[in-house]
Design a protein around this nucleic acid. Structure first.
Length: 341
DNA sequence: CAGTCGTGGCC
DNA sequence: TGGCCAAGACT
């Protein structure tokens, strides 16, 4: 990484990728037409951790309904959330709404400086740089998943790229390699290279404009870089749930306000030593994977006469569809109750 | 620093 | 098919 020609001559890097982008990059994406600060901000928030093909229809619908920042600032929460429905990471929608109100009512105009952009809710270092580049065609370094992968391979950077040490290196590279002009096309070039050439798997090195300078390519380590983060073994925990019916109703329990499935309704959960399990009959099992552990769930049909757990209520088949249930619990109930005559 | 937050696509 | 990943930010 110390010997790359690109570090001693950053303009060579910029010129190379910019020239490539003109002919081989993506230049017809919806947010590339009329790249106003508002349209760029909306697209960048939508694109956080979300693929381009997923975002496109959401972006179109959004712009039809909320064509400018004043419309968004004046919109109500329900409108905003409905337009976001299905995109995931809903904090982004709330932040975007907050951002519009902040810009319109507090700032009065859309910020230009990086440090001012960083004060906007939902806008971090990457998104601030992206807005600088795409909306203003001004200096705005970016490091996202694409740039991370590209730089790790190009400069042979070792180490898990999400660690702070590597992250620091990557941003230093981005700061140094980002030019003072052609920033819109330069930023797009980095993203396009990462997305269409320097892909996570099956990198297309033969059509890469940086091939001759690429450390990973020249040392045959394209598949080894960036360093994969060690996959942590997730423990498996057992969970015991009660299935208690009475007439046409099912007993559900509101979960605590913290921990997994906080504030949602669920089948009553009991400890494996619980008295209610003593003569219970196993009704079925299912598995659910969380980020930090795997749940082996057992659903038990206790003997009659078991006392109702605290905070529990009865729900019939119509009511159960209208309350917040964890996805696996809902799916269990649908399969074993609703669809069973 | 490590966990959290959604959903869909890919092999 | 399940594990990984996607234009990250926030706590």
């Amino acid at each position: 990484m110390l010997t790359s020609e690109y570090l001693t001559c950053p303009d060579l890097f910029a010129d190379t990728v910019v020239d490539w982008q003109k002919t081989d990059g993506r230049n017809a994406l919806p947010w590339q037409q009329d790249p106003s600060p508002y349209r760029v901000m909306v697209s960048e928030l939508m694109l956080q951790q979300t693929q381009v093909t997923t975002v496109i229809p959401y972006f179109q619908r959004w712009m039809q309904k909320l064509p400018d920042i004043h419309a968004l600032a004046a919109a109500d929460t329900d409108t905003v959330m409905a337009l976001w429905q299905g995109l995931g990471y809903y904090a982004r929608a709330r932040n975007l709404h907050k951002a519009a109100k902040y810009i319109v009512f507090d700032l009065g105009e859309f910020p230009f400086e990086l440090n001012d952009l960083l004060t906007i809710p939902g806008i971090g270092r990457y998104t601030a740089g992206a807005i600088r580049s795409f909306a203003y065609d001004a200096y705005g370094p970016i490091v996202d998943g694409n740039v991370r992968r590209l730089f790790c391979r190009l400069f042979g950077i070792e180490g898990v790229p999400t660690t702070s040490a590597v992250d620091k290196k990557l941003w230093a590279l981005a700061d140094a390699l980002t030019p003072k002009q052609n920033n819109r096309r330069f930023a797009q070039a980095l993203l396009d290279l990462g997305a269409t050439v320097c892909k996570p798997k099956q990198a297309d090195c033969l059509s890469c404009p940086l091939q001759t300078q690429c450390v990973a390519f020249n040392t045959g380590r394209v598949a080894e870089l960036p360093t994969a983060k060690p996959k942590k073994m997730t423990p498996t925990k057992a969970g015991h749930f009660l299935w208690i019916e009475q007439g046409d109703k099912l007993l559900l329990q509101k979960r605590p306000d913290s921990g997994i499935w906080a504030d949602l309704w669920s089948l009553p959960q009991v400890d494996e030593t619980a008295e209610s399990l003593l003569q219970a009959k196993l009704q079925g099992q299912f598995q659910h994977v969380f980020s930090h552990y795997k749940l082996d769930a057992s659903v038990w049909h206790p003997v009659s006469g078991v006392s109702e757990p605290a905070g529990s209520s009865w729900y019939n088949k119509e009511q159960v569809l209208e309350i917040g249930l964890p996805a696996p619990i809902r799916s269990w109930i649908e399969k074993n109750w609703l669809k069973k005559s």
